[in-house]
Amino acid sequence: MTDPEDEPLADWAARRERDRAEQRQKLGKRRVVPLSEGARASHIAPDAPRLLLEWNGTGWTTCGVAANADAAREFLGHVPEPEAGHDAPPSWPGLGPGRGRHRKP
């Protein structure tokens, strides 16, 4: 990168606009805000309704209301994992089948 004093203003402005556009993409286009009083964490009040907001390029606009935290996660694009049956063994990361010295019998 060149010295900021040597960089032309037009180049700096273009680079700044690119960086700001990338940052906006990272922040996301959708937001969920709980409508209940108190803490905003989803695990505190999972059955409380949520306000669904979407970024239109200049500000947040209301899209609707989700009935609970699960419906809000679907709006954000988070797909819930299927629940494993009671017969399925827990999945431990990095451990394959078999018995080793480091595993309990």
Rank of each mutant, 00 (worst) to 15 (best):
K29R: 13
G38T: 11
P34T: 15
E37T: 15
D11I: 14
A69M: 05
N68I: 05
H43M: 06
G98F: 04
S42C: 07
L27C: 02
L51M: 11
P34V: 13
A88V: 14
M1W: 04
R99W: 07
P93M: 08
D19T: 08
D19K: 14
L35G: 01
R20V: 09
G85C: 00
P49K: 07
A21F: 05
L35T: 12
R24N: 09
D47V: 03
E81W: 06
A13Q: 15
N56E: 08
V65W: 04
C63W: 04
E37L: 06
L95D: 00
P46Q: 05
A45H: 15
D6L: 11
L76H: 04
N68H: 13
P8V: 11
K29W: 06
R101K: 11
D47Q: 15
R15V: 05
P8D: 13
L9F: 10
R103I: 07
H102D: 05
H86Q: 06
L95S: 00
E7N: 07
A10S: 12
A45Y: 13
F75H: 07
L9G: 06
D11L: 14
G57L: 08
R73Q: 11
Q25L: 13
V79R: 15
L27M: 13
S91K: 14
W60F: 05
P8M: 07
E22N: 10
G64T: 14
P97I: 12
L35D: 00
E74N: 04
R20G: 00
H43D: 10
T61Q: 07
G38A: 07
P90C: 04
T61G: 01
T62L: 08
L53S: 02
E17C: 01
R73C: 09
P89C: 09
D3M: 06
V33F: 02
L53K: 13
R31E: 02
W12H: 07
R103H: 14
A13D: 08
C63R: 15
G38N: 07
G94L: 12
K104N: 02
E5Y: 12
R50L: 09
P80L: 11
A41V: 12
L95G: 00
R30C: 01
L53M: 09
K29A: 06
Q25W: 08
P82F: 02
W60E: 02
K26H: 06
P49V: 04
K26D: 01
G28L: 09
A14G: 03
G38S: 07
A84C: 03
T62Y: 02
R16Q: 08
A71P: 00
N68Q: 08
C63Q: 15
P8E: 03
D19C: 05
P49E: 03
L53D: 02
H78D: 03
Q25V: 13
W60C: 09
A10G: 00
P90Y: 06
L9M: 11
R50I: 00
D6E: 13
R73T: 05
E74L: 13
Q23R: 15
P82S: 04
A14L: 14
L76M: 12
K104R: 13
P82T: 09
S42N: 01
G64E: 07
M1F: 03
R50W: 15
R73V: 01
R31Y: 00
L51P: 00
M1I: 08
V32I: 15
A69D: 06
A67C: 04
L51T: 07
G28Q: 06
T61N: 09
G28D: 05
P89Q: 07
A67Q: 15
R20E: 10
W55C: 01
A72G: 02
S91R: 15
P80F: 11
N68R: 13
H43A: 01
